[in-house]
Simulated assay, not measured.
Amino acid sequence: MLDANWPDSWRNAFRIELRAEAIGLAWRGWPVLPGVNPVAVRGEDDDLTWRRPVPAYDNWSDVIGAHPHQVAEWFCDKTHSLLVATGTVLDAIEVDDELGKRAARLLRATGHPAPIVAMPNGRWLFLTTAAASIPAALAAQASIEWHGAGSWIPLPPSPFQHGVVHWRVKPEVWGWQLPEASAVHEVLVRALEGEHAIHLVESSAA
């Protein structure tokens, strides 16, 4: 996403935006981490493939909860991806686009939408309070990933190959109070069951 052909003013503006977001989240107590940007690597077919951002430091778990001043220093002179460690302040459930849309509709129907992040690779992240586990129905799905202790997620406006990570539902909607994990898990299970029911109807009609 960070095109080498961008004017310096664009790249600087993007770097400033990332830094401002990182500092703001750190002041709210979110465990911000600097991440490397997705990098292009040569695959077996010689096409360019992309990796998701990972922490910039191998000892990232040792710096969880860094002071906002430290976060400001990390993002001062480099364009890092904006990561947040999960398993302490917050968790995230990562799902595909179809399930994400179904769950988002159900959450809106309750009148209490959760913060939702969308990534350019078609994956959605539902943010919740930290939890000790997730329902078996979710854990059994290969397409669903729980980001808890020992993991991290990218937050806006981290760059990807064809765009940037962005909010579908901003944390301001909840007044920066994360929804209880169990409530969001329940909605995701309902969305999953509804998705399976639709597939069964389609299969029987074929």
Rank of each mutant, 00 (worst) to 15 (best):
F160H: 11
A205E: 09
V89K: 10
E94M: 01
L178F: 03
A142P: 02
G163Q: 05
R123L: 09
V201I: 11
V41F: 15
V165R: 02
D96T: 07
V169Y: 06
E186Q: 09
D97Q: 02
T88P: 01
D77R: 14
G163R: 00
A191P: 00
A104E: 07
A109G: 11
I198N: 13
P34Q: 03
E195D: 01
V39C: 06
A139C: 07
Q161L: 12
W30R: 04
H166F: 03
I144C: 09
H196S: 02
M1L: 03
P34I: 10
G35F: 09
T79H: 00
E21Y: 12
A109E: 15
C76P: 00
V117E: 04
R102M: 07
A85P: 07
R42K: 14
Q70K: 08
R102P: 01
R28Q: 12
H196D: 08
W10R: 14
W152Q: 05
D91N: 04
R108T: 10
R19F: 04
L33F: 03
P34G: 09
L2F: 09
I198S: 15
G87V: 09
D47Q: 14
K170F: 13
L90M: 14
P135Q: 03
R168A: 01
P156H: 11
E180I: 14
H80A: 02
E180H: 12
N37E: 05
D58M: 11
T128A: 06
